[in-house]
Simulated assay, not measured.
Amino acid sequence: MSPKLSVLDLSPIPAGYTPTDALSNSVDLARQAEAAGYHRYWLAEHHNTGMLACSAPELLICRIAGATTRLRVGSGGIMLPNHSPLKVAETFRVLEAMFPGRIDLGLGRAPGTDPVTASALRRGHADADEFPQQLADLVGYLKDVMPSDHPHARVRATPVGVPCPPIWILGSSLFGARVAAANGFGFAYAHHIVPENVHAAMRLYREEFRASPFGHEPRAILAVSAVCAPAADEAERLASTADLSMMRTRSGRTRTPLPSVEEALAYVYQPDEEALRQYNRTRIHIGTPEALAGSIGALARATQADEVMINSQIHSHEYRVRSYQLLASALLA
């Protein structure tokens, strides 16, 4: 049986367009994805960037869940060290109460930004090393099982009486796989960020998985980048946007919007930039529907993924929607 197919949306801001356009595009893409047979739609969290409009995924979840009827909608993810566990618990209880049975809580420990912005978000009160305790607190609030000796044992996440949405751990290393496995959570591996660890992390997650009230068996998502078009040369042309935007992101230049194909093709890469571009090509699948059905399908089988989650960074909204539609026709056949 083919893995389920889902969307990871970073709400890119294309050059020549506004953040309002980017968010409207996300709503339209969600509707189109639902019509094409996608199972899940997750919104990312990123800060202090001119390329992306996804600084508040909880707001986008509400908007997109309200604009669709069947899709599961969630965070891909909430970067927990940036937030109060109580506030996250209350936000997702409200979302679950508004859209029962359709909300996912995906959690990460990366900042989703640069160190200075992370410091501004966290105001010195949390870092990645505190993630295990923050996660324990969040679970305590969501399940109303805070230890009696906890300083906030009498605090309740409101509204009370709302089921806990499914919890997923996002990761690109063995750490996230172990956390997800130990707690019975779902696990989403970010191949589009770090492809090297995918086989080890997905294998470890299944080997170390322990059933819990959060899950009785492993649930593994493989998140990949893809650019799909009817012809291979067109896919390569569209992927030039992803090449340049990924290189700029890796080198800390994130103030500019998502470049157009024309800007990307005209850009002259310096040797160190070209090395980054070539590395980025190991993280992205580019080609026709048939070619990507082969490459993504083979990776999903090799990692025993239950679900494939696609992120497409394409300047044209029309061609981005088409890319997702072509992938659905190829991978859900």
Rank of each mutant, 00 (worst) to 15 (best):
E217H: 15
E273Y: 09
G252V: 13
V198I: 00
E217N: 13
P195S: 10
A220D: 08
E207Q: 12
S295F: 00
S295Y: 00
S295K: 06
T256M: 14
A181P: 15
A242Y: 15
V179G: 07
S172D: 08
V194Q: 10
A235F: 03
M246W: 12
S225T: 02
V194H: 09
R219Q: 15
A231E: 12
T241F: 01
V194C: 07
S240H: 05
V194A: 06
A293E: 14
A235T: 03
E207A: 12
P271C: 07
E236I: 08
N183R: 13
R219T: 11
E236W: 02
A291I: 03
H199E: 02
T254L: 12
R210Q: 15
D233P: 08
S251L: 14
A200Y: 01
I193Q: 01
M202R: 09
A266Q: 08
P218C: 15
I193A: 13
V198D: 01
F209P: 14
I169Y: 14
E234W: 04
I221E: 06
L299K: 11
A182H: 03
V224W: 05
S172A: 15
Q270W: 10
L292P: 14
G186D: 01
I284H: 04
Q278D: 09
D233C: 09
N183T: 00
R255D: 08
H285I: 01
E290V: 14
T241A: 07
Y189R: 07
R219E: 11
P259Q: 03
G252Y: 00
A201Q: 02
A200C: 04
P195M: 07
M246D: 10
R248A: 05
A223S: 13
A275I: 04
G176P: 11
R203K: 14
A232I: 04
S212L: 06
E234C: 12
S240V: 08
H192T: 02
T282C: 02
L244G: 06
T288F: 00
A220P: 04
R206D: 03
